[in-house]
Design a protein around this nucleic acid. Structure first.
Length: 516
RNA sequence: GCCGCGGUAGUAUAGCCCGGUCAAGUAUGCGGGCCUUUCGAGCCCGUGACCCGGGUUCAAAUCCCGGCCGCGGCACCA
């Protein structure tokens, strides 16, 4: 191991000890020296925006390409307009999400625009007698396959199959009437491997493809298109989830027949995120059947990249988590607390501090000269500017939660302002009395230091919190400087937690609660 | 059922290939303290794990066998 590390350091592949400590060193990729330049790829299906699980493949592939000064390719795998119809906006969102994650690609491909390449390789395989057109119905073939027997079409001559192939392309067969199969081992212990399907017919008149419409009827399956492209694009290392393990076994036949060299494969485990939903299928179904219950594909309860972004999670956090998982084949269940801890550190230096009061109660302070205004820095340590709180009348909101913990007659400090003593309740609110000005005085009395908002200079805040599968909207009051912020900005609501400005309108502001 | 891959503290991960330096490192959580005009950040101390059983060996988290548990796959999806 030490030898490997030394070697990697020599080659400049590993960050030296002194560099930033959060930068985790990824383990070396297998057989790098046997391939020359490392080429990796991320190959999403644009049928939906990507989630954290996809991000793992994307981030790792990209990271390794950069680490070895190689090439990273983005490839859209959109070869099923029927079962997984590609969504035009998904292509865009996926690119946006990747860029947001700091991922840049050297080349981009869209499989639906490469159909002729797939056809010509298929023809070659048929010519060589390694592939054939199968006219059996699905369940008929299944019986042959389960018995380990060849279906009648398998042994026809390449010439006959070539002829059939042209007819299929010309559209002479309908859905389910023909498939192109590759010849594999009919006695393979896993029936799924036996003569798997390379192409099937999809009626694109009924299910047009968003990019190429009804131009093609014969579509390659994932295993064919991916295998061929990985070779044509010179991919050296495939990093993908372990659900793909079997696909390697399938694809290897093509490589064997055509004398290609199969890339190195690393299968990593699945990722889960506590409390959030990752399942693409589930999300798609819900959005289709109960759209009114959700905020869209970027709902903050979804572990989609856009959902996490909307929630106030920063790309560095996602990258850090994914890199810390590395290539481990074990399934990982990320805890929200853990993710929040990392995000908090990333966001703490850039989040403006804002006073927000939930469960507000009005406090009228006697013995104070008004108007007065005070300036408070947006951040205790970083220079993020200042905000101004204007006290036209001696009336402020504080949280009733804070009040619960305060005995009558005790001193409390309004942060950055002055110290008061709670006197009594009245119909106008709580009556308090000015006590003293200095912080030292507050400390002397052991006064709690709490946030506050001037009654006359405030704005309504809708705070959206994720609670289990529900979103709770809490009506709060915030300081008016909120209006000067921009949508999408991440803030810290003092003593409440971090949040992201969702929407600013004249009368109110909605903030998504990120985490404590 | 069949095929494949795994199992290190609450969570995640390092170490496993190449057995000793591992009475197991790191992060987070949790407990305590310091600091701080936040219940945030920072600093310090503490807490807590090698799935089980056999075997090989002077020596096993690491190698071998068995068991148990978990996950993935078994499509004319990707």
């Amino acid at each position: 191991m030490t030898e490997l590390k030394e070697l990697a350091e020599k080659l400049g592949l590993v960050e030296s000890r002194e560099s930033k400590k959060e930068e985790r060193v990824l383990p070396p990729l297998p057989n790098v020296d046997m391939w020359g330049n490392v080429v990796t790829r991320f190959a999403p299906n644009p049928d939906f925006p990507i989630h954290l699980g996809n991000a793992r493949a994307a981030i790792l592939s990209h990271e390794y390409a950069r680490m070895y000064k190689g090439k990273f390719i983005l490839r859209f795998e959109d070869t099923d307009p029927r079962t997984k119809p590609p969504l035009p906006f998904s292509y865009l969102i996926i690119e946006k999400d990747l860029r947001w994650l700091g991922i840049t690609w050297d080349e981009k491909y869209i499989q639906s625009m490469r159909m002729d390449k797939y056809y010509s390789i298929a023809k070659k395989l048929i010519e060589l007698g390694y592939a054939y057109v199968d006219l059996c119905k699905k369940d008929v073939f299944r019986e042959y396959r389960n018995a380990g027997k060849a279906c009648p079409h398998r042994d026809m001559s390449p010439e006959q199959h070539l002829e059939l192939f042209d007819k299929v392309i010309a559209g002479e067969f309908g859905e389910g009437e023909a498939v192109i199969r590759i010849k594999t081992d009919l006695s393979h212990p896993d029936p799924a491997i036996r003569d798997w399907v390379m192409f099937r017919i999809i009626d694109t008149t009924r299910n047009p493809h968003p990019i190429v419409g009804d131009r093609y009827r014969l579509w390659p399956t994932y295993n064919f298109a991916a295998a061929v492209d990985d070779h044509l694009m010179g991919i050296t290392h495939i990093l993908r989830g372990k659900e793909h393990a079997l696909n390697t076994a399938k694809q290897i036949y093509i490589y064997k027949y055509l004398g290609w060299r199969y890339p190195e494969v690393v299968n990593f485990g699945r990722v889960g995120l506590e409390g959030l939903i990752l399942s693409k299928t589930w999300i798609k179904n819900q959005l289709k059947n109960n759209p009114e219950k959700f905020m869209g594909f970027d709902d903050i309860r979804f572990a989609t990249i856009s959902g996490l972004r909307r929630r106030g999670i920063v790309p560095e956090t996602i990258k850090e988590i994914i890199l810390s998982l590395g290539l481990s084949p074990v399934d990982a269940r990320i805890s929200w607390v853990n993710l929040a801890a990392i995000n908090r550190k990333n966001v703490d230096p850039i989040a403006k501090r804002i006073f927000v009061i939930c469960n507000p109660v009005k406090v009228v302070i006697e013995g104070v000269e008004t108007p007065r205004e005070i300036e408070i820095p947006f951040h205790p340590a970083k220079d993020l500017g200042k905000r101004k709180l204007v006290l036209a009348k001696p009336e402020v909101y504080i949280s009733s939660k804070d009040l619960e913990n305060i005995n009558q007659g005790a001193v409390i400090r309004l942060m950055e302002l002055f110290n008061i003593v709670i006197e009594r309740n009245s119909k106008d609110g709580i009556i308090a009395k000015y006590h003293s000005a200095s912080l030292d005085e507050a400390k002397k009395w052991g006064a709690p230091i709490i946030q506050w908002v001037p009654c006359n200079d405030s704005i309504k805040v809708d705070l959206l919190r994720v609670e289990g599968m529900k979103i709770r909207k809490e009506h709060c009051i915030g300081e008016s400087s909120l209006k000067t912020l921009r949508e999408g900005e991440i803030i810290q609501m003092v003593r409440l937690g971090f949040g992201k400005i969702e929407k600013i309108s004249k009368a109110r502001i909605s903030i998504i609660y990120s985490h404590e």
